[in-house]
Design a protein around this nucleic acid. Structure first.
Lengths: 208, 208
DNA sequence: AACAAAACTAAACAAGTGTTTAATTTAAAC
DNA sequence: GTTTAAATTAAACACTTGTTTAGTTTTGTT
């Protein structure tokens, strides 16, 4: 699918992404965006209509291909537990390399202020949940996964663990001695991902 | 410990808590607070000095007694796994009935804008982690808990799961048919808490 | 009752907000 | 090369922001 945005729009969107992620939607002004993107302040209204619509465009711009990635994973010929592990890796990787937009989604679309624009985002989440459900039910049929787990709560455990870690970045950088950005990213890719995989595996396979 | 705030200050703090939680710090104006609290707009500056200092005061006002609760739990005569379960219950309960301030902490103190005020909050987190560590090491010594878990990542799993659930409240209300506030709260107290306890137990006890 | 400190108020302040306007420059089409 | 549309601009718009000021009212103390 070709992007519907031209170069200038993309330039604005990416500056907006950084600033919204850093200082929040309300904490970022159009003049702020314009200055960093080196454009005139009227260009935001010209291209996107309003600040609010700029945010909507940003979400469309960033979340359009996750669905495909998940569907491809479902088709792969793997054991359920390996699919789960791959799904976790996919999620963490994707969110971690698109921190900006996910931080924004996490922040802006949970406040009462913007409940309306929620629908597209909600559909995305429902689709993701469906994928997870398919994999787990597959494992349950095969007798590998326990059946008394609450599937919709597994997503919060996967994503919540990552987010809570990342939201407290300065705290964990200090605690775990992750002095450079590389060390921090590496810790996420190895230890944190492993921890989440280990947790979900234990939850799904453990028999009391 | 007697509160350092007088009635009027507490009145302002509680209105600020609700509004900050609903619309964020930047999304809430002093005039907004003043209107809801039915006070003059100058009173915020008069009592707290500034909007920023009002936020600081709010955090002090709300997070002063968690430490004691945790220390009492540590002293109780319980099996490690029961202590863990009780700790999870304590956390969820507490955060759930103080949603406002924890939402604010979660939102405002993870952005670059307010990294300075982070210290007191960081100390609180370190203390909490220490408590969790004590319990888990006790279980490991007794041979009940596995030893290859990364303890600092367990807190993100507990708190992150709850937060991610709560941050997506409208989504889960819809998905799980929790039409009233009571149903939603009850789901947290029973199913969500159970899910987290089950997850952590599986993680700590599971042997591959 | 007289005084002083605290509590409270309306008004003003300077600065910043998102958006619109009208004019100008650039690019594309013929 | 002229015409037409798109892109870009500086300036202005009306409004909101956090904070301060200079009073007034209330409260407590002697």
């Amino acid at each position: 699918m070709k992007s519907n945005f031209n170069d200038k729009q993309i330039q604005i969107l990416e500056v907006a992404e950084t600033l919204f992620a850093e200082k929040g939607f309300d904490g970022t002004s159009i003049r702020n965006i314009a200055k960093v993107a080196k454009i005139n302040i009227a260009m935001v209204s010209y291209y996107f209509g309003s600040k609010e619509r700029l945010l909507e465009s940003l979400i469309v711009y960033r979340t359009s291909d996750l669905k495909n990635q998940l569907e491809n994973l479902l088709q792969e010929d793997l054991e359920p537990i390996d699919k789960i592990n791959k799904l976790i890796e996919l999620y963490i990787n994707r969110i971690n390399s698109n921190r900006g937009i996910y931080r924004i989604l996490h922040f802006e679309f949970t406040s009462k202020k913007r409940e309306q624009n929620l629908q597209a985002f909600s559909e995305l989440k429902k689709g993701n949940l469906k994928s997870l459900e398919t994999i787990i039910e597959e494992g349950q049929k095969k007798g590998i996964f326990r059946k008394d787990v609450i599937i919709p709560l597994i997503a919060p455990t996967i994503l919540g663990t990552f987010f809570h870690f990342h939201m407290n970045k300065p705290f964990f950088e200090n605690l775990l001695n992750l002095k450079t950005e590389d060390l921090y990213n590496n810790y996420i890719k190895t230890n944190l991902t492993k921890h989440i995989q280990q947790t979900i595996k234990a939850l799904l396979i453990y028999e009391s």
